[in-house]
Design a protein around this nucleic acid. Structure first.
Lengths: 207, 207
DNA sequence: GCCGCCCCATGACGTTTGTCATGAGCAGTG
DNA sequence: CACTGCTCATGACAAACGTCATGGGGCGGC
């Protein structure tokens, strides 16, 4: 019935000061949680984690420097005892998959309440996983990426509307090859041209 | 030296429960502020505002139903005494312009601290304006849209990668005309093709 | 060892775009 | 009224793009 003598140490990483601060304040209301560090960017999150060795790292997906998943990957290597979880505004199916592959144990949208987040932090700390049901359903319905490695790479290079010549140069491929990859990628995705292909692939988290 | 007997009544609208709740908690720490209503969508924000008649409405830019600027526009008509301000994660220059045109008196990114936000709420309530300096600078450097009405319209229709034929049909224009508009829009923007034009126009808030 | 799949390339073909010239109708402005 | 700028259109040409057939090299599975 008594509170555990060892509070659960949390790292909070989010580039939006407003949210980070507010979150820290709300989590502080939970007796068994203590926010030991805050960070506003990917690299900073990593540094703070190494310095403060938290039990759980709560990472925003989109941060300057390195995104949450990248931070989680590094953390896993350098601080294996630290559980990681991702909080995000716009959860795309592919992100979830990448996150789980990176050893992330929790994946929740920012639409949850703070109380609920606190519960999930405890769940994660206990060694269990938690994935938002809605996001999980999306991920399942979106399915696996049908794209090969090169197809995805070329598609990504095409994302900003660059012409084939530029893509070819940046990928060190011939223009013909690039067009073949773009063509096959688009047909796999079911898009009429590469631009809609890029958009759809993005929506499904395949790039 | 005593606190004003009439606390400043605030409406909070943000679709992310986590943030909204956390923000409400932080603002509650300010003695002269009281959050009288919360909303998770545009329409709900409007309804709550009419029901609770707050002094200041703090609106997220991106919400389901109607975005912050639309809510501000409606609010201005239906509740002229209520000051409005926008809080946003990704501030694009064009949004700021639209917001100011809608009578919004405050425009801040979510990177500010809660204390700072509280100050700005007071500033706005006092009848003054506050615009984040960084966003203001961006807006100025981005300048006015050089696009004509049709150019912008056609560009928007091209946003999802649709072929010219489809754009022409949807805009009830001939294909040649569409290509002319796209061409002139792209050259005005300084893009090599319409897809990068769309991207750049989006970044500058012109579409 | 054969088969399938991915990787990379080339050449060829038809289609889609981007660009330019040109012109008509129709505002708003000086 | 002349002028300017937006709107809409057409035709024509070059460049970019999408698609297909074809082929060689590599790598893992049956």
């Amino acid at each position: 019935m008594t509170t555990a003598p060892q509070p659960l140490r949390v790292l909070l990483a989010d580039d939006e000061h407003l949210i980070r601060g507010a979150l820290a304040a709300l989590l502080a209301l939970e007796e068994d949680l203590v926010v030991v560090a805050e960070a506003a960017s990917g690299p900073e999150a990593l540094a703070m984690a190494l310095a403060h060795r938290p039990d759980v790292a709560v990472l925003d997906l989109q941060m300057p420097g390195a995104d949450g998943v990248k931070v989680a990957t590094s953390l896993r290597a350098e601080l294996p005892d630290c559980r990681t979880m991702i909080v995000t505004s716009h959860g795309r199916p592919g992100h979830l998959k990448r996150a789980l592959a990176a050893g992330v144990r929790g994946f929740v949208p920012k639409t949850v309440s703070a109380r609920r987040l606190a519960e999930i932090i405890r769940t994660v700390h206990a060694g269990n996983r938690y994935v938002d049901p809605e996001l999980a359903a999306d991920a399942i319905s979106a399915g696996d990426s049908p794209l090969t490695a090169r197809e995805a790479e070329v598609l990504e290079l095409a994302a900003d509307g660059a012409p084939v010549a530029e893509i070819a140069e940046r990928a060190s491929l011939s223009q013909g090859t690039v067009r073949n990859y773009l063509s096959s990628a688009a047909s796999k995705i079911g898009a009429e041209n590469r631009h809609t292909a890029v958009r759809l692939a993005r929506e499904r988290g395949w790039v």
